[in-house]
Nucleic acid binder design. Structure first.
Lengths: 259, 259
DNA sequence: CGGGCGAAATAACATAGGTGAGGGTCAAGC
DNA sequence: GCTTGACCCTCACCTATGTTATTTCGCCCG
C-alpha cells in the first residue's frame, strides 16, 4: 500500500487546489469527493486583468470557480459610479445556481490574471447528485457568501473609513488564510487604491489618506501588492472584526494561529 | 371536471398565501405543489413587534417563512451601531439552508406583529425531494435574496441619501406588489424613520430631512404607516432603479401595470 | 380628558469625507 | 533613453451628512 498522500498546507501562496481546501473548512472530503471536484473543474480558461468574465445582461451558462487569481463582482450605475459588491479569491465559486436565471444583474471581472473553471449545469448536478458531502459543502459555501455580503452591507452602512478599510483587509487576509494563501500576517494583495475605493464606497483620495493613517498607526504595511498586517489584534479591534460570519469553526479545522 | 380554481390577485393587501404567490413569480406551481407548501407551512407562531425571532449566536433550528407582517435582519456592532441588512415581507424565506450552520451571525426581529412559519429541516428536505418545481423556485428565491443584498451594498456605497431612500421605497413597493400587497403606488409601510435610518446607514434626522424633500418634490406621500408613491417613473429615475435584480420576468408573470 | 410616550419635525452647529487639480514614481515598450 | 500610462500621493477647499437638543404630534390608556 502506498503511503497516504500528504497535502502540504504550510507554504505561503501554495498551489494546492484551493477549492477542496476551501470546502474542507466545512466538511472533510474523501478522496473520491476530491476527485469529483477535480473532474468538474477540468474545463478552465484564463482571463486578463480588468476583463469581464461575464457582463450584466448576459445569460449565465456556467458556474465559475476561481482557481487562481482575484476577481470581483461589480455593479455600475447610469451616472458612472461603480461599486465592487464582492471579491473572489482562489477557491470561491460565483453563484452555484446562477444558470437558472435569465440574465446577470451584475458583472464579474478579473482583477489579476485569472484562472477560472467553467462548470456546466450538468456537471454541477452530477456532482451534487453523487456526492452528498460536496453538496453540503457547496450549500455551506453559499451561506458563507451571503453572510459576507451582509457583513459588507454593515461595513458600508456603519463603519468609518478607517474601520471599514481595516475590516476589509482583515476579512481578505482571513479568507486567504483559509485556503492556504496567507500566513504570518502576510498575503498577496493585488487591489489598487481605486479598487479599494470602489469596494468601500470611498474615493481613491480618501482611501489613500486612510491607508496612510493605518500605516502611521503601525497596523499595516502595504506595498508592491503585498499586504502585511503588523498587529492583527489591534486591526480586529479597531475594525470591530468578528469572524463568526465566515463560519470557519468546523470539524477540527486548524487555522493559522496568527489568524 | 370542476372549473379551475381562480386565485384572485386583485385586492390590495390580499390575504392570499404570499408564499405561493412569491414563488410563482418564478415558476408555475401545481395544486400539489401548493398543497405541499401549505403543509410545510403548517407550524407557525406570532412574534410581537421589536422582538427577536432568533438572535446572533443562536443555533438555527428552523427555516422561517414570513406569512404576514414585516421583519428585518440586523447586525449590531460593539459600539452600539446597528445596521438593518435586509427586510422581509410576506412570502419571504429566511435562509433556506441556515440550519446547517452552527450559529447565527446576525439576528432577525419582527417589525410589525409577525406571523411566521417554522419549517424543520426534515420538512424542507421532504419538500425538495418530492417537488422539483418548488425546489427550483426555492433556489430562485435564494438567488434573488442574494441579488437584493448586492443591490443594498450598491445602494449604501454609491447612492446619495436622497437616491438611497427613494431606491429603498421603490424596491419595497415592487416586492410587495409581487405578492399582491401593493397596488396603484400604495402600500403599507410600517417602518419608522429610525428603521429607515438603520437600513440606509443614515441618521434619523437626515432621513427626516430627506423624506421631506421627497415629499416637497411631489414624489411620495408617507403617513400613518401608509406609503403612496405619486410618480413611479420619476422615483425610478432619481433612484436609478433597475428592476433586473428582482428577476421577476418569468413565464407570463403579469405585474401591476403601474409597477 | 389628561398624562405619558414613541415617533416626527426642526434648528444650529460640527465634521468626515468628497472634489478637482497637480506632481511624483516606476515599469513597459519603442 | 524617451514616452506613456498606471498607480500613488498631496493639497486646499467644499458640502452632504452627522450631532445634540428641543418642540410638536398622535395615540393609547387609565
Amino acid at each position: 500500500m502506498p503511503p497516504p498522500t500528504v497535502v502540504s498546507r504550510s507554504f505561503l501562496f501554495s498551489s494546492e487546489p484551493a477549492v477542496a481546501s476551501k470546502l474542507e473548512a466545512f466538511a472533510r472530503l474523501s478522496a473520491d469527493d476530491r476527485a469529483a471536484l477535480a473532474e468538474a473543474t477540468h474545463n478552465f480558461r484564463y482571463v486578463e486583468p480588468r476583463r469581464d468574465l461575464i457582463s450584466e445582461g448576459d445569460k449565465p451558462r456556467f458556474v465559475h470557480l476561481v482557481l487562481d487569481g482575484w476577481a470581483c463582482r461589480y455593479k455600475q450605475l447610469p451616472d458612472g459610479k461603480r461599486q465592487i459588491v464582492s471579491l473572489f479569491v482562489p477557491g470561491d465559486f460565483c453563484d452555484i445556481n446562477v444558470y437558472i436565471l435569465k440574465a446577470m444583474d451584475h458583472s464579474i471581472a478579473a482583477i489579476t490574471r485569472l484562472k477560472v473553471a467553467m462548470i456546466t449545469p450538468d456537471e454541477m448536478s452530477a456532482l451534487t447528485s453523487e456526492r452528498p458531502r460536496v453538496t453540503q459543502a457547496l450549500w455551506w459555501h453559499e451561506l458563507v457568501t451571503a453572510a459576507v455580503q451582509r457583513e459588507w452591507t454593515l461595513n458600508l452602512g456603519q463603519r468609518s473609513a478607517y474601520e471599514r478599510l481595516a475590516h476589509l483587509l482583515v476579512e481578505l487576509y482571513m479568507r486567504l488564510n483559509a485556503v492556504g494563501r496567507a500566513q504570518d500576517g502576510r498575503c498577496d494583495f493585488p487591489l489598487t487604491q481605486n479598487d479599494l475605493a470602489d469596494a468601500t464606497g470611498l474615493t481613491a483620495v480618501h482611501v489613500n489618506r486612510t491607508l496612510q493613517e493605518l500605516r502611521r498607526d503601525g497596523l499595516i504595511e502595504l506595498e508592491r501588492k503585498q499586504l502585511h498586517i503588523l498587529d492583527m489584534e489591534r486591526m480586529k479591534d479597531v475594525s470591530m472584526f468578528n469572524a463568526n460570519y465566515l463560519h470557519l469553526d468546523h470539524e477540527g479545522r486548524h487555522l493559522d494561529a496568527n489568524a
